[in-house]
Design a protein around this nucleic acid. Sequence first.
DNA 1: CATCCACAGGAAGGACGGGGGT
DNA 2: ACCCCCGTCCTTCCTGTGGATG
Length: 403
Amino acid sequence: MSIDEIIQKVLTARIFKDRERLRPDYVPENLPHREREINRLAEILAPAVKGARPSNAFIYGLPGTGKTAVTRYVLRKIDSYSKNYAPSVGLRFAYINCRNENTNYRVLFTLCCCLDEKVPFTGLSTAELFRRFVRTLNTQRMLFFVVLDEVDFLVKVSGDDVLYKLTRINPELHEARLSIIGITNDLNFVEYLDPRVKSSLGEEELVFRPYTTEELADILLQRARTAFNEGVLEESVIPLCASLAAREHGDARRALDLLRVAAEIAEREGSPRVLEEHVRRAYGEIEKDRAVEIVKSMPLHTKLVVAAVYLLRNKKCEATTGEIYDAYKSLCRKLMMDELTQRRISDILNELDMLGVVNAKVTSKGRYGRTKVVRLAISEKALIDGLKSDVRLSSFLSCEILG
DNA sequence: CATCCACAGGAAGGACGGGGGT
DNA sequence: ACCCCCGTCCTTCCTGTGGATG
């Protein structure tokens, strides 16, 4: 295909009207089927429009149930109202995704950045950083909303230290007030928390139910109206996206991704309409891309562990920690590398489990010990593609895996 | 019923690279 | 220049344990 043809194809593409409407971070004008949650959160946060500090709130819900979207949506409203009703109180917002900012230091660093306070991104003690944060807060009259998305990551990695301090910060402040909105999709999260943090963070609690298939279809339909041109979707496309996403606990983000990628595939092929077949291919593509990216970004030894799991798959599709460690060690020897300890490999397997690359389950085999039983959870093709990009593994890949 | 396997996973700490304050 | 704190990644040493087996 020539470049002229490619460009011609884009120019004549008639599928998308407004692609942006399907982006995962797009917050639409209305969020269907989350009215109850919106109202609940609005009730909690409403005091802010008059400059009073709202209670801290805690939001639970599985991925893609609209937690983040609802929070952003309500805060946006609050912000616009407060400008009229309490202009003297500055509302500030910090949105922190704790999957990325998963240490106490990084969280405080980000908070300081939101207040335009210049702090070094490493070097200070967290206590000093906290002191500066408080000092900055005290320079102005403001209401500071701190949204901690996926806050379970922060606590799992770094403990609830900062969380504790943040929940107790208000008495130290003069004219500023701070409200925390914690978001998590781990329903057992509270168990890791210090009871004191639990009680002050969970002053208000909201639980977001997963969307049903019908609700997902409805959401997709509303987005599709503005995102696509009329009549480009085969009738069964939206129900299929909805039911595929519903299979994974009613995840709206997945459903939207599915629809967008399906449409992109259709467009790429020059198909005038998005067909059911495109959705099915999109489903495979999304899964695979995600897996490839994860594998690519792993450190070398983690890659070797995955490779070891892969090599053991032929015997039976499961392997124990000990078997994996032996296979890993022989890989290291072939590559003339130092091997890590079994203790470390055990942790790496848990990390891989968290990433969804493998499933690991501790199982007791009675007299024959207690071990993790591990199986690969991504496609072999994705794994190979992910490993292939690492030059250090190319020799091993060519002889061990590709034959 | 006690035993005992093959690990799980906690605790402590060390090496290292990044970056302070003074 | 000096000593500091931090996070990351890893090791060493350790105690704990579910359940088939004898």
